[in-house]
Design a protein around this nucleic acid. Structure first.
Length: 634
RNA sequence: GCCAAUAUAGCUCAGUCGGUAGAGCAACGGUUUCGUAAACCGUAGGUCGGGGGUUCGAGUCCCCCUGUUGGCUCCA
């Protein structure tokens, strides 16, 4: 007998070799029905897994991330099986589950067409109806290689050869289809009730652009049709809040063919942008930052000195002036270095916090451009902090607090990553280690959870990245703090210490919004265009019922403008329902309806975007209310 | 940059087998002066992304280029 301890702490004896699925059935029929995998002593396993020893067991359903992954992984096998039935000559690469579904990469002579996808979906339906059982088996290394080689699956051979010597090599069989796979999987193909193939894409083998490009098919699946519909519905909803669409509908910005990746900001987009910048300025002034502006174009020598010439050239734009080579800045730091060097500093002057809203240009691959999220020119809300070595931790902590303050202001969730030394880097391993330790120490002092991102640092130093989560769960890197021992060295930055000698300051680069353009893109999606009143490009629209109220409305508009409120009037000869509809589509926070009654009583009928009709109100009452809302930034 | 899809009026989209371009909304003109999400009538608007080719004839078929979209790669 074996003793099995369940999630709730209870335990029970079963015969040796009972499977995970049988235990689930014993617990309850309902659980057995929704079970997709198990967790045996913390390890995810198949429901078909027999249990030979005492163990703790957790039954996973589709609601568990691990369970969902098994479910999606099985669906990817079903897709691969369908592809092999339809196109026997296609070679299989890899087919994992991802955060939202699964994909499978295929090596095929002829790219898939949308019609192929339909045929594959049909074949998958058949495989699901056949309700094939999945069976796991293991093979010794050489046999495994021979097995896949005989099938002509050269990518699988390569995968097995790259597995560590001592690893268990497992396969899963469903009907005539066998695939190399670590598992786990759901017990049979019939478990997958509802699925959809979503998109086709090219993808390099092993993500390396020097390798062959394979054909990737993405898909999603669910145990119930209603869940699939809900997911597809969510995708539709996300489309509606796409910042590119809202940017056009709300007249905020545009990106034209004449400037791919170079956005134009419209008047309303500029209002939003200016508010963000003035918020930024006031918060930074409060925290002891000064502001500078450095040139967009600087000569070649500077970029050679900063290391960008050697380490960043492929992302830079160049120009020539009077026979000399110049570069358009991709970063603000070298300019700031020059500003630091304009005079002598005492240790008493440090830390020196030098901020710059700097417009940088970077050559991004054409295929990577994406609305405001990924552009070729953007404004970094940059700052360089020069400090004594003993000030490093406090300064980093200060920036972490500042970033947190900003993001909370907009109600964002975020997570933190710590990136270490990349391949193309300046400086010694010791310097890097010191810098990484300083960042870790600051994070730990703040008690922040973070993940390590190996090899993803800037070429001059490690960094802490802040990743915001957007409306459809994508994450975007915004804030970053980068510790840099290299630039001060290269530019020979010094300060005079208490001992009267010259010393080397330490420097950090940091941004909070990251890129104002990207941040605006994220804000648009986050609020679905319905900006809180303090950010709304137009805060109030005055709507006339008939021409008779026009003069009163013009007076009101002036009064509200004088109170610092952003106002528009709609005096057109249209019905009130029509005007309200348009104002709502523009997501304007307040509509003031003014007809004969309001002219008579010297009031306004207030309709809030979020709360609907609030009824008549004295003008002063409304102004007080909205001003309060604006100053609270609620 | 690579793979695929795609580009028709300001916007959203029709356009069959290759026979010479159409709707709704928006704009403009008129009528209507109306109380909380779309009044009515009319007018105008297009080198069908650009270039080349096939054809008696191309929005439609082929090739090249550009942009866009979804991925890959890269990143704020």
């Amino acid at each position: 007998m074996v003793r099995i301890t369940l999630k709730d702490g209870s335990s029970k004896e079963y015969r040796k070799g009972i499977t995970v699925g049988e235990v689930a059935s014993d617990i309850s029929k309902g659980l057995a029905r929704v079970a997709v995998a198990g967790q045996l002593n913390g390890q995810t396993v198949d429901l078909m897994q027999p249990i030979w020893e005492d163990a703790s067991l957790n039954i996973l359903t589709f609601d568990d991330m691990e369970g969902r992954k098994a479910f999606w992984h099985t669906t990817s096998h079903i897709m691969a099986q369908a592809v092999k039935r339809l196109f026997p000559n296609i070679k299989l690469a890899i087919g994992p589950s991802i955060d939202n579904g699964f994909y499978y990469d295929f090596d095929t002579e002829r790219p898939f067409t949308p019609e192929d996808l339909e045929a594959i979906e049909k074949e998958m339906e058949k495989i699901i109806k056949e309700d094939l059982e999945l069976e796991r088996f293991e093979l010794p290394r050489q046999e495994a290689i021979d097995f896949v080689a005989e099938k002509g699956e050269s990518y699988k051979v390569e995968l097995i050869e790259d597995l560590p010597e001592d690893s268990v090599i497992s396969f899963y069989r469903q009907g005539e289809f066998v695939d190399l796979c670590a598992g786990p999987h759901v017990p049979s193909t019939g478990k997958v009730k509802s699925f959809k193939l979503l998109s086709l894409a090219g993808a390099y083998w092993r993500g390396d652009e020097n390798n062959k490009m394979l054909q990737r098919i993405y898909g999603i699946s669910y145990p119930k049709k209603s869940q699939l519909d809900e997911y597809l519905n969510r995708l539709e909803e996300a489309k509606k809040r796409d910042h590119r669409r809202l940017g056009r509908e709300l007249d905020l910005f545009s990106i034209l063919e004449e400037g791919p990746g170079f956005p134009f900001f419209h008047p309303k987009g500029m209002v939003l942008r200016n508010i963000l910048e003035s918020f930024w300025r006031s918060e930074h002034t409060k925290r002891g930052y000064e502001e500078v502006r450095t040139p967009i174009i600087l000569n070649r020598d500077l970029w050679v000195r900063s290391g960008h010439w050697d380490h960043y050239q492929e992302n830079m734009y160049f120009t020539n002036i009077d026979g000399g080579d110049y570069a358009i800045k991709p970063m603000n730091c070298p300019g700031s270095m020059l500003l630091y060097k304009r005079r002598m500093y005492s240790y008493r002057d440090l830390p020196l916090r030098m901020g710059e809203l700097g417009l940088v240009h970077r050559h991004e691959l054409s295929g990577a451009l994406h609305g405001l999220m990924r552009v070729r020119c953007f404004t970094q809300d940059d700052a360089h902090i020069f400090m004594l070595p003993e000030q490093v931790k406090d300064e980093i902590v200060g920036v972490i607090d500042l970033v947190d303050y900003f993001y909370k202001q907009f109600g964002f969730n975020y997570h933190v990553e710590l990136s270490t030394k990349p391949e193309k880097a300046m400086g010694t391993d010791e310097e890097w280690e010191m810098a990484i330790d300083a960042l870790k120490e600051a994070l730990e002092e703040k008690g922040m959870d973070y993940v390590i991102n190996e090899g993803d640092g800037a070429f001059y130093g490690p960094k802490i990245d802040f990743h915001l989560e957007d409306s459809i769960g994508r994450t975007w890197q915004c804030g970053t703090i980068q510790l840099d021992f290299q630039m001060p060295e290269r530019f020979d930055l010094t300060y005079i210490g208490a001992d009267g000698e010259k010393h080397r300051p330490v420097m950090i680069h940091r941004v909070v919004f990251g890129s104002i353009e990207r941040f605006i893109g994220i804000l648009i999606e986050h609020y679905a265009g319905a900006f809180p009143t303090w950010l709304a490009p137009v805060q109030v629209r005055l709507l006339s019922i008939t021409d008779r109220s026009a003069d009163y409305i013009k007076d009101l508009a002036r009064e509200l403008e004088n109170a610092g409120i952003r106002v528009e009037t709609d005096l057109r000869n249209e019905k009130i329902g029509y005007k309200i509809r348009e104002a709502r589509l523009q997501r304007i926070p307040y509509m003031l309806v003014v007809g004969d009654k309001e002219v008579e009583s010297r009031q306004v009928a207030v309709r809030s975007r979020d709360e609907g009709d609030l009824g008549p109100m004295d003008v002063k009452t409304f102004v007080d209310k909205i001003q309060q809302e604006i100053s609270d930034r609620s």
